[in-house]
């Protein structure tokens, strides 16, 4: 009954809808939340939605993982490896930025006792 889900068009449509929803959730959190960690999480969610979109749209149903195991030399039916490699790289970069952000937040909180963006008033137009 659910075979229609296997057609690439429907599947890709679902991926697009899902990842765009995630993107909008991240954007909402970025603009509406005030706690620094929540803002960092929102950015991570936005990044994640882009990765999902990339990997989701670059593969079609029935394709196998782009790994050449021993003795296997044929490329038949394999998903495009480039998006997966790029996504891995991007995940690592995103992780590093997130770690830097979290550590800066912790230091800022230790120093000033707050973690609220609206309370950051050290630098402003005078």
């Amino acid at each position: 009954m659910l075979e229609f889900l296997d057609s690439p068009r429907v599947l890709h449509g679902i991926y697009v809808l899902g990842s765009l929803t995630l993107f909008v959730i991240g954007l909402y959190g970025l603009l509406a939340k005030r706690h620094l960690l929540k803002i960092l999480i929102s950015i991570a969610v936005m990044e994640l939605s882009v990765y999902l979109l990339f990997v989701g749209l670059a593969t079609s149903p029935g394709e196998t993982a782009p790994i050449l195991s021993d003795g296997l030399r044929a490329f038949a039916g394999m998903a495009d490896p480039v998006p997966q490699a790029l996504t891995l790289t991007a995940i690592v970069i995103g992780m590093a930025v997130l770690a830097l952000g979290a550590s800066l937040t912790i230091q800022y909180h230790r120093l000033t006792g707050n973690a609220d963006v609206t309370a950051m008033t050290e630098l402003k137009d005078s």
């Binding site: 970025l30 952000g101 800066l104 800022y108 050290e122």
Partner: peptide, 10 residues
């Protein structure tokens, strides 16, 4: 400095 760094990072 931390405030500048955080704002820049975000």
């Amino acid at each position: 400095a931390l405030e500048a760094g955080l704002k820049y990072l975000i």
